[in-house]
Design a protein around this nucleic acid. Structure first.
Ligand SMILES: NC(=O)c1ccc[n+]([C@@H]2O[C@H](COP(=O)([O-])OP(=O)(O)OC[C@H]3O[C@@H](n4cnc5c(N)ncnc54)[C@H](O)[C@@H]3O)[C@@H](O)[C@H]2O)c1
Ligand SMILES: NC(=O)c1ccc[n+]([C@@H]2O[C@H](COP(=O)([O-])OP(=O)(O)OC[C@H]3O[C@@H](n4cnc5c(N)ncnc54)[C@H](O)[C@@H]3O)[C@@H](O)[C@H]2O)c1
Lengths: 218, 218
DNA sequence: TAGCGATTGTGAAACCATTCACAAATCAGG
DNA sequence: CCTGATTTGTGAATGGTTTCACAATCGCTA
């Protein structure tokens, strides 16, 4: 099992690529592959075979020399590693444009990320029903989050409210946050924070376009 | 000027941090700061002073020794570098849950990313009005995208349609794509592609939570 | 205008991630 | 059961990014 292996430090890029491998394997399984070599997997995802092997080797030896990796088994291993072989209870705070889109996205639940609670501070929204979930008052967070065993909070409130909301969910014992507000949230060291910042991605594209003509991007 | 400097290769991380510096400077300006030291800027964004200085030094010498960086001027320099000192015409393809959220987000336009065209292939949506923009038939892309001088395409169609849509916008001459579909798009080498994959971020959090108990994350 | 304290800008060092290269292992076919 | 073709798993080499450390520079004050 990959779970009780002693691991020192896995880089963010490796974790990111594990997600990519998982998606590739899903497709390969559908296409009827039983095994896949690092060479072919790498080709599909525009990576190198060595990188695929090195990434996987941090967690164990899942392949068969001369043959490759068994597709189904490797999927199982990666979902063990990523922790997506189980359900996580998720709370979403701020059911506006982005929040509504996320709530109605069925793939998350299929993947094990189940939105159990929705919070807002707008009286017109509190009590309304979103895909079967009644929107709760943000003031109820302290009671409801521990009750529902929430592991992950998704923050989709305006930037001006995000830090306060973040402090609130941390206070409730949530240790993992996905933040959509375009600000740098301050969290304690033992809380995991990931940011989804669409403006930064657009700015990156803008940089690339802007500098194309100067020959920066090789 | 930062624009006509000879630059070899700037790392993705540096570009990402430039966006972060820009946001920090916006806040600092509001708070009334005239100058800011790399030390304080780093502290605010949980980075190191050396990193701030090194990042900026790739593009020029914007600071004053003994004093720090002039806030307003540095903002100007960074927006020159990132190319956000101008407007970019953007097309959005797929006006579903995510697409609608993006269209109604006013901050993008304020930042210079102006959505000029919206495409869909759903007859019920074509012709409807989203924030003043009439949704066009995807079949019109070849005509409208060149006409409107579109630089960036945002793809918010289901994964199954994304590659085809992507090929279409590339065909129209678009060189920068922001993709929300959870698949690895294939684009020619001279097309810039950035992915916004929310599931991968959730999986990263799941990994961290999953492995917390085994002492991986130091 | 000289001296002090602060802070930049930048080579060099340290660190981390990726790629290389090959021994070890397995499969398949006779 | 042996042989050749294949592919893994992994130390070592390479390449890239971050941090260190300090000379150079500037503002300020007297
Ligand atoms: N809409 C987009 O396309 C987009 C793009 C990039 C980033 N973002 C960011 O995502 C976040 C959400 O954007 P949006 O467009 O959905 O905004 P929105 O205004 O549509 O929704 C925000 C929601 O949060 C609620 N809210 C506000 N303060 C709250 C508080 N203190 N406690 C609980 N709920 C509160 C509001 O009632 C509202 O329902 C913002 O930070 C925005 O900057 C949005
Ligand atoms: N909704 C979310 O919260 C969420 C989260 C993560 C990822 N995503 C991804 O973002 C993308 C969009 O998600 P969504 O929830 O907005 O989906 P959606 O079904 O609500 O919207 C998709 C839109 O694309 C249009 N479309 C479909 N095929 C098209 C084609 N060939 N040409 C033009 N338009 C076409 C549809 O008519 C629809 O309007 C998907 O790839 C999804 O996987 C969504």
């Amino acid at each position: 099992m990959a779970t009780n292996r002693k691991i020192r430090k896995i880089s963010d890029s490796t974790i990111h690529r594990l997600s990519i491998y998982y998606r590739a394997l899903l497709a390969l399984e559908k296409e009827g592959y039983d095994t896949i070599s690092s060479k072919e997997l790498a080709k599909r995802e525009k990576l190198t075979p060595a990188q695929v092997r090195k990434d996987l080797s941090f967690f164990g030896s899942f392949g068969t020399r001369g043959l490759g990796y068994p597709v189904k088994q490797l999927m199982q291993e990666i979902s063990d590693i990523l922790g997506i072989n189980r359900a996580w209870n998720v709370a979403l705070i701020g059911v506006g444009n982005v929040g509504s889109a996320l709530v109605s996205y069925k793939e998350f639940a299929k993947q094990g990320f189940v939105i159990r609670l929705i919070f807002d501070n707008d009286q017109r929204k509190i009590g309304s029903n979103h895909k079967g979930i009644v929107v709760s008052d943000i003031a109820e967070m302290g009671k409801l989050i521990p009750e529902h065993n929430i592991s992950i909070a998704i923050i989709t409130v305006p930037g001006s409210a995000a830090q306060k909301v973040c402090d609130g969910v941390v206070e409730c014992g949530v240790r993992a946050i996905l933040n959509f507000a375009p600000i740098n949230l301050r969290v304690p060291d033992d809380v995991y924070l990931r940011n989804e910042n669409m403006a930064i991605e657009l700015e990156h594209l803008s940089f690339l376009l802007r500098n194309m003509e100067f020959g920066i991007a090789e």
